[in-house]
């Protein structure tokens, strides 16, 4: 289990201080598919980068009770829309490199996903389209053999069919011990894919609910998000009415 205790992260100096994470405490047991939601700047990416140790933070993050270091970092993989592959290296080269560094790298899964998305094994990744690069990024994260797969907006730039395919494949191939933490804005698309939703707002966790709880209460994920963020749908109506009144007045 990944456990975060009172994690705080502040960017910038005294003049540009921005609190990206504010006392975030969260437990992520193995075998869950967790959606991480929040507006831009809510702290989703920062949270993932703190888990991976890319950023310094205050508080405590542990993996099965141990701090996350080079010794256990291989248990976590990361797919990001910023991309983390080697652009000049081929897919085949990536597979060989990963196999040497990550003992649990699954060649079988790699081949299956590469064939499913019809990606080239022998072309350098820089020659892939943006959508293909995203697919490849996710493939590598899925095949590393990690127990925790962190995905930060992995499908930005992919079309809806492509994303749909990926969710289905993902659900089909995930092992019971594998945990996916997926940060995305595409709430409705992932609603049937995730088992738990964590909502962030201004660096704080403002909502944490399982989809079973949502079903039992007869709400959709979107309802829950709107409710949690106090989304006022009447705002739009009000603005439109005001605008049309102004135009009539003119």
């Amino acid at each position: 289990m990944i456990e975060l205790k009172d994690v705080c992260k502040v960017y910038g100096g005294s003049y540009t201080r921005k609190e990206a994470l504010n006392k975030v405490s969260l437990k992520l047991p193995q075998g869950e598919i967790v959606g991480l939601f929040g507006e831009n700047g809510a702290g989703k990416t920062t949270l993932m980068k703190c888990i991976l140790g890319y950023l310094k933070y205050d508080g405590e993050i542990t993996l099965d009770g141990e701090p996350i270091t080079t010794k256990n970092i291989a248990r976590i993989s990361f797919a990001t829309n910023e991309h983390s592959f080697f652009p000049g290296l081929t897919a085949k080269g990536h597979a060989e490199f990963y196999a040497e560094h990550f003992p649990k790298f699954s060649e079988k899964r790699f081949k299956a996903l590469m064939d499913f998305f019809e990606l080239s094994y022998n072309a350098p990744i820089r020659h892939f389209s943006t959508g293909q690069k995203n697919q490849f990024e996710v493939i590598m994260a899925m095949c590393q053999g990690a127990d925790y797969i962190l995905m930060d907006e992995p499908f930005a730039g992919n079309d809806v069919f492509n994303r749909e395919d990926f969710y289905k494949v993902l659900l089909g191939i995930l092992e019971p011990h594998e945990t996916v933490i997926l940060s995305t804005h595409l709430l409705e698309e992932v609603e049937n894919f995730i088992g738990r939703a964590v909502l962030l707002h201004n660096g704080r966790i403002v909502g944490d609910v399982t989809t079973t709880e949502l079903e039992e209460s007869g709400r959709t994920l979107m309802d829950y998000v709107k409710e949690t963020y106090n989304y006022r749908s009447d705002r739009v109506v009000k603005v439109l009415r005001e605008l049309s009144d102004t135009e009539k007045g003119n």
Partner: peptide, 20 residues
């Protein structure tokens, strides 16, 4: 230029290796 990884943040992968 080899290893600059323009268009990608390969440092994310480097930092997840057992090699420092």
């Amino acid at each position: 230029l080899n290893g600059c990884s323009f268009g990608s943040k390969a440092i994310y992968t480097f930092r997840r290796l057992s090699v420092s």
